Computed example of a mutant assay.
Amino acid sequence: MSPRGVAIPELRERLFAAAERVLARDGAGALTSRAVTDEAGCAKGVLHAHFEGFDTFVADLVLSRFETAAALALDLPARAGEGSVVENLAEVSGAVLSLDPGLVGLAVTRPVAAQRVREAWRAGAPGFGVIEECVARYLRAEQDAGRAPAGLDAGSAALALVGTLHHLLMTGPEEPAASRERVGRLLRALVGAGGV
């Protein structure tokens, strides 16, 4: 337990990691501010001193994890011509699917958290929209390189991928390997098994 008045290095990430451990071990129903701070080894008031409330904490955790997943998508267009098209898209998809469905569901069912996430995404925070845009740009770049089918509607393919990822997150839980396999089948259908 950290003594009162002593700064805790990297507190935000420490609380986020603690929340993810609680979710993985006990499920979304067990995620409370006390469970998070107990898991992180800090006083209960620490969470409320650094976030406007538990809903803000949940929203910021979701946004943080989407930012991590979207970072891979942001890098996609620059990777055109490297590796396999299907594998590159599968890597980004895997990052999105690594989000805890319980956390995403919790953020959606808490009105304040859901509103905060929507507002952040509208303001440009990395989320499904950013991932969709990056995938479309990447597919267009791969079409230009002759590595994705010329007749592929890149925007629609990106929407199909992001819609599938959203569906799998929101309807989980499913074994991660099963979700990855379903996304792999979709990618092969979209860009073809020969999508270099």
Score class of each variant (00 low, 15 high):
163 G>K: 01
31 L>M: 10
138 Y>F: 14
144 D>K: 13
133 E>Y: 00
11 L>Y: 04
64 S>M: 09
182 R>S: 01
28 A>F: 11
143 Q>W: 03
59 A>S: 09
76 L>Y: 09
105 G>P: 07
173 P>A: 12
101 P>R: 09
38 D>C: 09
75 D>Y: 04
60 D>N: 07
108 V>E: 12
140 R>A: 01
93 S>V: 09
111 P>A: 10
174 E>F: 15
24 A>S: 15
40 A>M: 13
117 V>L: 11
70 A>I: 02
104 V>Y: 14
43 A>I: 07
6 V>I: 13
111 P>V: 11
35 A>H: 05
130 V>N: 04
102 G>E: 06
86 V>C: 04
170 M>G: 03
86 V>I: 14
77 P>T: 02
153 D>P: 10
1 M>D: 14
46 V>G: 01
99 L>R: 10
23 L>E: 03
51 F>W: 04
147 R>T: 00
175 E>D: 15
187 L>F: 06
109 T>I: 11
128 F>K: 11
77 P>A: 10
103 L>A: 09
142 E>A: 06
19 A>Q: 04
125 A>W: 11
78 A>W: 03
120 A>F: 14
64 S>N: 09
37 T>W: 06
92 V>T: 12
66 F>K: 04
178 A>S: 12
16 F>K: 01
153 D>S: 10
19 A>T: 03
145 A>C: 00
183 V>A: 02
71 A>V: 02
166 H>F: 13
185 R>C: 09
192 G>S: 01
142 E>K: 03
127 G>N: 09
16 F>W: 08
100 D>G: 08
163 G>V: 03
147 R>A: 05
95 A>D: 12
3 P>G: 10
55 D>L: 08
75 D>L: 14
14 R>V: 00
86 V>A: 11
97 L>N: 07
61 L>I: 04
55 D>C: 12
171 T>G: 08
51 F>L: 06
143 Q>G: 04
184 G>H: 06
196 V>M: 11
82 E>P: 00
83 G>C: 07
5 G>R: 04
123 A>L: 13
97 L>E: 08
35 A>D: 02
37 T>Q: 05
158 A>V: 00
94 G>S: 14
10 E>Q: 08
183 V>Y: 00
136 A>S: 06
131 I>S: 05
134 C>Q: 11
121 W>A: 07
30 A>I: 12
169 L>P: 04
88 N>W: 01
140 R>Y: 13
56 T>G: 13
168 L>S: 00
136 A>H: 03
161 L>T: 08
114 A>K: 00
141 A>E: 10
150 A>M: 11
90 A>S: 15
176 P>C: 05
2 S>H: 08
149 P>V: 02
103 L>K: 06
46 V>H: 05
122 R>H: 15
5 G>S: 04
74 L>A: 08
84 S>N: 09
62 V>R: 04
108 V>Y: 13
161 L>M: 10
37 T>E: 07
91 E>V: 11
14 R>D: 06
176 P>L: 10
148 A>I: 03
135 V>C: 06
62 V>M: 01
7 A>L: 14
61 L>A: 11
152 L>M: 13
161 L>D: 02
75 D>Q: 12
92 V>G: 06
